[in-house]
Design a protein around this nucleic acid. Structure first.
Length: 584
RNA sequence: CGGGGUGUAGCUCAGCCAGGCUAGAGCGCGUGGUUUGGGACCACGAGGUCGGCGGUUCAAAUCCGCCCACCCCGACCA
């Protein structure tokens, strides 16, 4: 064994030791920056992990980057364990590939587009299904090559209408996307199961509690999709969760049992004067009836076409369901101008006798007799409207929004609604991309078939925000030990005391020799500053060395998660820390 | 895109309504000194196109107009 003394002295150019806080880049903030609203955003800024450049565009500073890389490493390990193979795809895409898939309009304005010097159209990739399908089709010909799981961890760009919440919703973001390729639906099921487990592992290892919910697949497409949701008030999504069984869904997608209404024989239609009465509540009060006895009309513009949406008065419209029912990209409530152009009278509209307007009715409407609806003229309503007899819809399907207290579609117990952050999303794409992109393989019988695809994403920056949301206290971040930038925060009190600095230097070396990473606060700061920074930065263990502890031949060890500290003899400190690091 | 809010020093903000000296405070930063177990103290100091452009005025951080940026709610969104 070579003695340490025989090693060449450190060359001068490596003299900056960045694990000493005096040299470490990035500073802590005492005050909360005004722009930060959510807890994670505040802590990420205060601890000096990230810095904002523009709306939804962030720099990662050394400490934040270190953690992000650990997050990526966990993801990488779980993807590899599931049989995934990592590759790297371009961020810059020729616009033609997006035109080929026909998906550009679906993304609308959220795709960043640009031109090269020859005026060719390019896209800053918002996601990579098209690109991976292209890679696939050039390399895979046979069913023997399947199943196949390919993934990438890289930057993507989406010009979000509204970035928000620090890292929760950004415009330039790093995302892990894994794409699965299978011969058939059963294969896809299996790949999807693998990913469900892999995702569960990732979030468990990151210390973020998640629930799996049924989701809407939006612009990514496909038949089924699930989201991993972290229930948090800082989230921008709403999760509908059954209070009794395991039903859980994104509010965009959630179903519920609609209350049955008494069946009665249809009565004759009868017009009633309702001056100034427009809202359902007013109508009910005026006529002395309940909301479920009314028919509510809501007007949307769906890709520029007027749509009349009819739903019973005791329910609200779920716009995502309407959008899906109409296969529309853009859906918005009609404004006054659009209403007038379509010849509709807000507050008194009725589907009866309506022409040239697409009518969508909720599926509870046909079984709800004798409803009160508008008369298609001001200040009047009609009683006893009956679906089938008086009017029909172009589409009858579920378009109702699940609300707090509604009955679970599975067990009938009350549903709860909670704010949530979408941590991961799994899509069963099927063959929609492979057909458009010509990604086929030859099956056992030599027949070319479109490959069955799945896509599975995790936003790494958002996950970082979720980790901080899930693990912090009043004082700052509490890193799960597997993600902490350093294992130990070494705090020297009284830097002017040689016994303190000597002990710290020895411990600093000794711990590193033992494979423990150390952030050493060697600054000439007061104890309060150092302790507060240690709490804010959130390393799992704090090791304090001061004249007071050295008088007892000891140093002080404290877990970030605990209030109390313990004195440990200096010579036992390294062993003790090592032991503590092994226990979660 | 609709609604609301905010732009003054690295950060948090006051000053603006009621125009008027070299534009302020706290924190942070630099120098020197005193301190040292939960964001210490003293002294001195550096640091500002008052978001931008235009207008009104003898005079604009302050009043008016246009624009831009950022934040929040909604729409939209993986």
């Amino acid at each position: 064994m070579i003695s340490l003394l025989t090693l060449t002295p450190r060359p001068a150019y490596s003299a900056i030791d960045v694990m000493r806080l005096s040299h470490h880049f990035g500073r802590t903030l005492r005050q909360v920056p005004a722009e930060a609203d959510t807890v994670s955003h505040q802590l990420l800024l205060r601890a000096g992990l990230v810095q904002q450049l523009a709306a939804g565009i962030y720099s990662y500073l050394p400490l934040g980057w270190k953690v992000l890389r650990k997050v990526e490493q966990i993801i990488r390990e779980e993807m590899d364990a599931a049989g995934g193979q990592e590759l790297m795809l371009p961020a810059l895409h020729p616009i033609e590939i997006w035109e080929a898939s026909g998906r550009l309009p679906l993304f609308g304005g959220t795709v960043f587009t640009l031109s090269d010097r020859r005026d060719r159209g390019l896209v800053l990739g918002p996601t990579h299904e098209e690109i991976i399908a292209d890679v696939f089709k050039r390399h895979v010909q046979s069913y023997r090559d399947l199943p196949l799981l390919l993934y990438q961890i890289q930057v993507k760009f989406r010009d979000e209408a509204r970035p928000r919440g620090g890292l929760i919703r950004v415009r330039e973001f790093t995302m892990k996307d894994l794409y699965s390729f299978d011969v058939d639906a059963e294969g896809l099921d299996e790949s999807c199961r693998k990913m469900l487990q892999a995702y569960k592992n990732v979030f468990d290892r990151c210390g973020v509690p998640t629930v799996v919910v049924e989701a809407d697949s939006g612009a990514i497409g496909g038949k089924d999709s699930w989201e991993f949701m972290f229930l948090s008030d800082s989230g921008e999504d709403q999760a509908v969760i059954c209070s009794a069984c395991d039903y859980a869904a994104n509010a965009e997608r959630a179903d519920f049992r609609k209350p049955d209404v008494p069946q009665e024989t249809p009565k004759p239609v009868d017009e009633v004067s309702t001056p100034g009465i427009k809202a359902i509540d007013d109508l009910c009060a005026f006529l002395g009836i309940a909301p479920w006895q009314t028919l509510k009309a809501v007007f949307y513009s769906a890709d520029g076409q007027p749509a009349f949406v009819a739903i019973r008065g005791d329910m609200e419209v779920n716009e995502t369901k309407v959008r899906n029912a109409l296969s529309a990209v853009d859906l918005h409530l009609m404004d006054d101008v659009e209403l007038e152009q379509a010849g509709l009278v807000a507050g008194y509209a009725s589907p009866v006798g309506l022409k040239n307007v697409k009518v969508v009715a909720d599926d509870a409407v046909p079984s709800s007799p004798n409803l009160v609806g508008g008369a298609n003229k001001p200040d009047a309503h009609q009683r006893n409207l009956n679906y089938g007899r008086d009017w029909t819809a172009d589409i009858v399907t579920d378009i109702a929004l699940a609300r707090e207290g509604d009955a679970c579609p599975r067990c009938g117990s009350p549903l709860t609604i909670q704010r949530a952050m979408e941590m991961g999303h799994l899509f069963k794409l099927g063959t929609i991309y492979s057909e458009k992109m010509g990604a086929t393989f030859l099956d056992r019988d030599g027949v070319a078939k479109p490959v069955v695809m799945g896509s599975y994403g995790i936003g790494t920056g958002r996950l970082l925000a979720g980790i901080v949301e899930a693990s912090h206290d009043e004082q700052g971040i509490i890193w799960p030990s597997q993600l902490a930038p350093y294992d130990v925060h070494l705090v020297a009190l009284s830097m002017d005391r040689p016994d303190v600095t000597d002990a710290c230097e020895r411990l600093y070396e000794e711990l590193q020799q033992a494979g423990i990473s150390v952030l050493y606060d060697d600054r000439d700061e007061s104890p309060g500053v150092k302790f507060n920074d240690a709490d804010l930065l959130g390393m799992p263990l704090r090791l304090t060395v001061s004249p007071r502890t050295l008088d007892k031949g000891s140093v002080e060890v404290k877990r970030r998660t605990e209030k109390e500290s313990t004195l440990v003899p200096v010579e036992e400190a390294a062993a003790r820390l090592q032991e503590l690091l092994k226990q979660p």
